[in-house]
Design a protein around this nucleic acid. Structure first.
Lengths: 331, 331
DNA sequence: GTGAAAGCGCTAACAC
DNA sequence: GTGTTAGCGCTTTCAC
């Protein structure tokens, strides 16, 4: 079997308490004892059993991050940010993928209930406000990247409305007036907020809103192409398209090229997120960057504060976005 | 504080042993007791503390998957396969990202040492054979997607040599004779095996090997473009390129387009992995598919067998690859 | 069919 | 500065 703290104590000729003190960096240990303990640890190749430690301390120093998919560089980058901060303060991040189903999210949150983790960050959750509020009462959770209307819980995200406003305004500045919108029917804040930003930008530029320039589907890749097809069937085709995600934008671009439409010249396309693919695509894709690393760091920092505090911070933190112009808008 | 098994026992008017039996589905419980226990669990909203359970049972039913990056759909898909199988047999998969550094891999493997997980799967590890063999002596580990020469440990991967052979042969069948190769200097089995497959395919087709048609860099995106530039500088330019990864192929395609070369017509490009981006790119990218889902399922199945057995299976399992032809080879 | 009790490996309160 | 010991929540052996 495994070597335990008892074995180390016996080998070093001290009590388990002393070994534990050395392990945890207590200063109440003589240099001599510490040396003997460390030698014993080395000799026996001892590693403390965290199950025992965590059970005793009622904490694991592990945070769970649940995301709808792992195949999205937006999420990957946020997780990197989370890990980078967590490592600095002695926490670990583990991840789980829900495939966008609430059933999976709930199942994975059981790690919170069964004390396997100290807290959880939900990226792009499908849970509703009531469920989240109930959870937040008893557990340390946070939302990132995607807020939920009515959820009174720690959240870190960009200002989606303003970001969309800035994106559409950038298109207007390039002389576009006929600007279409690819959004979703999801109840997530981001999609409706981005639609609102789109509308406000048009209004501020004195451009009339046209319902036939608005497509609402899902976040699935195919919807971008579908939207482009619908727009193309219009008598008066749009000369620019703003999509609420890069994948939708890329899908639309793909369809455009297939149809012989020159992206960047005949039609400008702008996405949202700045995933890695934007730079690899041909044409490269204009987009709105979310500061993923920063979001990850911030959400973990605040969540850990909550874990170690009796009073819970449930603020909605907003981080800076940035419009990036590339070939798909003719830049 | 949290509600424990004791609270449930008190509420149900039974002993903790009986509650534990109900929790674990033992049949030695009267219907009446079981009913009262379940009611108490419901009423108190009880969730068993897994730290206690795991400590007692010396097992966690959790498997760790370490990968170089999370921004690669190849790995995402493998993890999905792992999760799909694991869920069926009551295991959980957690993931960690090493960013391709051995230091991070070792740090993350400490979850194995401190008993936080029962086993680990390494995707595209950087560890050397000796380290892996030492680990495998004391812990349940497996390699997936990328074998290591000299590592005597459970491994699941495609037959890289044959896969590359088939890819290059497909190019030959399309009438190409001047076929270049983009590989890496890495010590991983896959890169050298794919280079060997490339060479064998040329030999079998009676095509002379040209050293100036071979580029060896890293797996970094930029290297594909760099390789294309070098090939373009040659007097006698290649008419086809086989790259050991889709990202390298995509990078090469990007550079080709930037240089005004028509991909699919002037030059055929073939990648390896069949990541999602292959279908999103313009042109779509020909490639060799690795059966990610199947690899994930198989490696977890075999690893769990090892966990529950005293005799360790250290075989190298090979799974089927498939050449997929798309626009980048003129299909 | 059920309960009492030992013990998994660890930390921390307490005594010295 | 150090050791003894209780106990974290759970499972399981043993006795009844």
């Amino acid at each position: 079997m495994s070597v335990t703290i008892k074995d180390v104590a016996r080998e070093a000729g001290v009590s388990v308490a002393t070994v534990s003190r050395v392990l945890n960096g207590s200063c109440n240990v003589s240099e001599d004892s510490a040396k003997r303990v460390n030698e014993a640890i080395e000799k026996l190749n001892y590693s403390p059993n965290f199950l025992g430690r965590n059970l005793r301390k009622c904490e694991t120093n592990v945070i769970l991050c649940i995301m709808p998919t792992s195949e999205h560089s937006l999420y990957s980058k946020i997780v990197m940010g989370m890990q980078s901060y967590a490592a600095k303060v002695g926490y670990d991040i583990i991840t789980a993928v829900s495939y966008g189903t609430t059933a999976a999210e709930i199942r994975q949150l059981s790690m919170l209930f069964n004390k396997t983790v100290d807290g959880a960050v939900l990226l792009g959750t499908q849970l509703d406000a009531e469920t989240i509020n109930n959870l937040a009462e008893n557990y340390n959770i946070a939302l990132c990247c995607e807020g939920i209307t009515g959820a009174d819980v720690l959240t870190v995200a960009v200002d989606d409305e303003q970001a969309a406003y800035d994106a559409v305004t950038a298109l207007v500045r390039k002389g576009k007036r006929k600007i279409a919108f690819i959004g979703t029917n999801s109840s997530a804040i981001s999609s409706t907020a981005r639609e609102n930003g789109y509308k406000r930008a048009l209004a501020d530029s004195g451009i009339a809103l046209r319902e036939d320039y608005i497509f609402r589907g899902t976040y699935d890749y195919e919807c971008g192409a579908q939207a482009f097809e619908e727009f193309s069937a219009l008598e008066d085709k749009p000369e620019a398209i703003f999509a609420v995600s890069d994948l939708l934008a890329i899908s639309a671009i793909h369809k455009a090229v297939d149809m012989g439409v020159k992206v960047g010249e005949d039609v400008a396309v702008m996405g949202f997120d700045n995933i890695s693919m934007c730079e690899m695509m041909l044409p490269t894709v204009s987009t709105v960057e979310q500061p993923c690393g920063k979001m990850g760091e911030l959400v973990v920092a605040k969540l850990i504060e909550n874990i170690n505090s009796s009073v819970k911070d449930s603020k909605y933190y907003t981080v800076e976005h940035k419009v990036i112009l590339r070939q798909s808008t003719g830049d």
